[in-house]
Design a protein around this nucleic acid. Structure first.
Lengths: 119, 119
DNA sequence: ACGCATACTATGCGTGACAAAGTATGCTGT
DNA sequence: ACAGCATACTTTGTCACGCATAGTATGCGT
């Protein structure tokens, strides 16, 4: 039996707009993944906190690809049709920038006393 | 001479929607403040990271008041007209909830390796 | 071969972030 | 006194994202 996961309530995504793109970039840093796989991976890796539905993730992927942050390819013939995404150079750059932004925000929230300071 | 402050570039607020309300709630936790004062306080307290313009903050205040999170009063007669805001009970409740959300997000970002874990 | 889980696409609404432009008040120096 | 500037608030309009809903298509298990 797999260790029981007790999923947290997802954050109000309206509150945390922009967490999605960063999560996607981070997961794709290791290698290519397809949409549906990302939906589940984000859910599991963040214990449900950043979980998002397909109707949020897919448009996000299209958007990021249009911006040149991601590139995609379809799976081979006579395999299940899946669209695999990978980071572009611009995507890596963006990930680095976004990570800095998150650090800054965490710091700002810390200085307001909303969250504890980073270690 | 006051210690020099080197303001950080504000975060892309589109990326971090929702940071504003939390910052406002947190600052009003201590006592009432008026709009313009909040604009500057947020800027200074977060070293420019969460800085937002008047056209962002004022509508935000109206909105939060409409939601019952804040209450306001005008300054006394023959004083400069200022609208002072204070937390309502609902506002305090919301602040507590939002703080938990931020903790969760920070944790999620940590588990993805975007930011370091909280101390 | 049938049904279900997988996997992707498209549409439409609500809402927050923000630039820009406008209005009004009081302090400060001369 | 009064001109000029910083203070202080309001309004309008645009854009982009989050997401619910609905729809389509493919392949695997039995």
């Amino acid at each position: 039996m797999a260790p029981t996961r007790t999923p947290s309530t997802p954050v109000d995504r309206e509150l945390m707009r922009g967490a999605g793109p960063t999560a996607v970039l981070k997961l794709l840093e290791r290698g290519e993944m397809y949409g549906y796989e990302l939906v589940e991976a984000i859910d599991k890796r963040t214990d449900g906190i950043l979980a998002m539905g397909q109707s949020t993730l897919y448009p996000l992927l299209y958007n990021m690809e249009a911006k040149g942050l991601l590139a995609s390819r379809w799976s081979e013939e006579n395999a299940r049709p899946r669209k695999y995404y990978r980071l572009t150079a611009a995507g890596r750059k963006r990930l680095a920038a976004d990570s800095l932004q998150w650090r800054a925000v965490a710091q700002a929230m810390g200085s307001l006393g909303v969250v504890y300071a980073l270690s």
